[in-house]
Amino acid sequence: MPKGVVLAQRSLFKIRDALAKEGLDWIDWRPGDVSLIGIPGFHVGGIWWAMQGFSAGATNVAMPRFDSGVAVGLIRDLGVTTACMVPSMLRLLLAEPGSGPDDFRTLRKVVYGGSPISETLLAECLETLDCDMAQIYGLTETGNTAVCLPPADHVPGGPRMRAAGRPYPGVQVKIIDSDGSPVPAGTVGEVCLHSPANMLEYWRQPEATARTLVDGWIHTGDAGRLDEDGYVFIQDRIKDLIIVAGENIYPAEIENVLAKHPAVADAAVVGVPDDRFGEAVHAFVALRPGAQAGPRDLLEFLRERIAAFKIPHRFEFVDRVPRNPSGKILRRELRDRLWQGRDRKVN
């Protein structure tokens, strides 16, 4: 192995040991690790995970494209110990016909992020994969991950299962209102990050740079809050906010509750025009194979779990919820048809 790689590997292990002493060994590397790269290389998460593995001297297993059946076989046959995926990949992995806990027995840690994850899916991962889970949150603009929810906080039913995590050492987080002023803990606003790995600029886009990078802070465009202990909770993208009669509704909250219904495989929620209240909540629902559920079933299920004004005005059943390669819901694709002929309130 080249001397530079050896030195880098030793440095990473020293950092790992130092973090472990402080209880911060959230994403660690160990001698003999076999790492599965599930996220595409054109995404910052994919190239970041690949370079992490290379720097640590791990064996990297790269997939040309994600295929859940192939991924299960690679984990089982090559003894994969650690992997990085988005929630939609984890959902496909668990749903792969014929797969089970024995296929994942070599896994010790799975890092996930890129889009919101439902508590139901997270609980299924903890049970079936039977390994440590670590959630990451960040942007290309922050050099990828800036916040992490460590394995110790992955307690089913625990208060932090919905959190994105805590900022890494050297990373700062603040929540601001529409005027740019910081808000108190527990108040929802725009999440801003200050990281040593912040971008310098968007290539030849000075106006976009000025909007995103303000006084050294990256304005993420995400709505979220901080709790008293400094944990970050992401509500949703600000542009995906639905306003019904003056009340703010975040789609991810409703999607998370819908995912708990035993018949629901996936769900997406968007705002649609409403002459009376400005917007109404519209839910797209994909059912599990062979499962049955109608609008009334979902309506009664939600009534016991969320406020009445957040319950969807209409349920539309679809074969699948459209997502991009990073696992993010393509809300614009879902909204376009529903906003035809209207002055758009969202992009």
Rank of each mutant, 00 (worst) to 15 (best):
Asp77His: 11
Leu78Ser: 05
Leu78Cys: 06
Gly79Gln: 00
Val80Ser: 09
Ala83Met: 15
Ala83Trp: 05
Cys84Arg: 00
Val86Ile: 10
Pro87Arg: 06
Met89Asp: 08
Met89Lys: 07
Met89Glu: 10
Leu90Thr: 04
Arg91Val: 00
Ala95Ser: 11
Pro97Phe: 10
Pro97Ala: 07
Pro97Tyr: 09
Gly98Asn: 08
Ser99Met: 06
Gly100Tyr: 06
Gly100Val: 02
Pro101Arg: 14
Phe104Asp: 04
Arg105Thr: 12
Leu107Arg: 00
Leu107Gly: 01
Leu107Thr: 00
Arg108His: 14
Lys109Arg: 15
Lys109Met: 13
Lys109Gly: 04
Val110Cys: 11
Gly113Trp: 03
Gly113Tyr: 00
Ser115Leu: 03
Ser115Glu: 09
Pro116Gly: 08
Glu119Tyr: 03
Thr120Glu: 15
Thr120Leu: 12
Leu121His: 05
Leu122Cys: 13
Leu122Pro: 02
Leu122Gln: 14
Glu124Ala: 14
Glu124Leu: 05
Cys125His: 07
Leu126Gly: 14
Glu127Trp: 01
Leu129Ser: 12
Leu129Phe: 04
Asp130Cys: 03
Cys131Gly: 00
Asp132Asn: 12
Met133Cys: 12
Met133Ile: 04
Met133Ser: 01
Met133Asn: 01
Tyr137His: 11
Leu139Ile: 12
Leu139Met: 15
Leu139Asp: 06
Thr142Lys: 01
Thr142Phe: 03
Thr142Pro: 05
Gly143Met: 06
Val147Thr: 10
Cys148Arg: 05
Cys148Phe: 05
Leu149Ile: 01
Pro150Lys: 07
Pro150Gly: 06
Pro150Met: 05
Pro151Leu: 03
Pro151Ala: 15
His154Ser: 09
His154Pro: 02
Val155Tyr: 09
Gly158Gln: 11
Pro159Thr: 06
Pro159Met: 07
Pro159His: 02
Ala163Cys: 08
Ala164Lys: 11
Arg166Pro: 01
Pro167Val: 13
Tyr168Ile: 07
Gly170Ile: 02
Gln172Phe: 14
Lys174Arg: 15
Ile175Gln: 07
Ile175Phe: 09
Ile175His: 04
Ile176Ala: 08
Gly180Gln: 08
Gly180Trp: 10
Pro182Trp: 03
Pro182Val: 08
Pro182Ile: 03
Val183Ala: 05
Pro184Met: 06
Pro184His: 13
Ala185Gln: 12
Gly189Ile: 05
Gly189His: 11
